[in-house]
């Protein structure tokens, strides 16, 4: 789906160096790293918003590529209703769409009765749900999320994680999920990558295999073991601070 080969990114200083990364179609990959290590930059490269200083970012089938991006802030347009916010990508791509289709997406993110609300009438969790619906409505096959749940309380956050997983299991788009929460990364993804800081390098990679339900997995000893293992790697990757 998405391939990084020997990618370097330099602003005033080196931010990312020597990133080699291949993400298969339908995979759910998380990127973990301390703040400032270049996680957002990596997503900007993955979405073609920025070009790497060196190296190549390419896609398996660029023609059918449709990217959904979820920012850390919900990034809604306050002058539009919830409904008008989520249909923006369809509008921009001049696609015909039915109201039912849009309502279906609202229902899937749990906002059935909010279509006529304005963003400033929503809670933080609800705004993030709108943002997620908007990123998916155009039939996205590569979903990039930049610490989407960082500002939410624990309960809201777990609900949104489960809802995201449910949608992903149905639609099977590819996900690149950036977070600084170790447990979130392990819980959600099939593969966790750990970035070090200054400059950001992939220092560790862990496949999360799964044989029991997500809920049980979160409470299991194995989950704890992976958690401590990754946390150690994350800690040793923090240098130059």
């Amino acid at each position: 789906m998405l391939n990084f080969s020997n990618v370097h990114m330099k602003f005033d200083k080196d931010v990312l160096s020597d990133i080699n990364l291949n993400i298969d179609s339908g995979e759910f990959v998380s990127i973990l790293g301390p703040s400032g290590c270049g996680k957002s930059t990596l997503l900007r490269l993955a979405s073609n918003l920025a070009k790497p200083t060196k190296g190549v970012v390419d896609y398996i089938s660029p023609k059918d590529l449709s990217i959904g991006f979820v920012f850390q802030n919900p990034t809604l347009m306050p002058w539009r209703t919830v409904m008008e916010n989520i249909t923006l990508p369809l509008e921009l791509n001049k696609k015909k769409f039915s109201k039912e289709e849009a309502l279906m997406w609202l229902a899937r993110v749990g906002l059935k009765d909010k279509e006529k609300s304005y963003p400033n009438e929503l809670s933080g969790g609800q705004m993030m749900r709108v943002s997620i619906a908007r990123s998916l409505i155009n039939g996205c096959n590569l979903l990039l999320l930049d610490e989407p749940f960082a500002a939410l309380d624990e309960i809201t956050r777990r609900k949104l994680e489960d809802d995201l997983l449910e949608i992903w299991e149905k639609e099977k788009f590819t996900v690149l999920f950036v977070t600084h929460s170790v447990s979130e990364a392990i819980y959600l993804s099939q593969r966790v990558l750990v970035l070090s800081s200054g400059p950001g390098k992939i220092v560790y990679e862990k496949n999360i295999s799964q044989y029991i339900s997500k809920e049980e997995f979160r409470e299991s000893k194995e989950f704890q073991a992976i958690n401590s293992e990754i946390f150690e790697k994350l800690k040793s990757g923090v240098n130059n601070e």
């Binding site: 900007r44 979405s47 073609n48 918003l49 990217i67 991006f69 920012f71 802030n73 990034t75 347009m77 002058w79 923006l88 990508p89 509008e91 921009l92 791509n93 155009n138």
Partner: peptide, 25 residues
């Protein structure tokens, strides 16, 4: 800035960005 990036990702034209983003904002 993020809204601008959202429009870029959706390949919005200059005209669309003006009418649907810049002017309302």
């Amino acid at each position: 800035k993020n809204l601008k990036e959202l429009f870029l990702i959706n390949r919005a034209s200059k005209w669309q960005t003006l009418i649907k983003l810049n002017l309302p904002y």
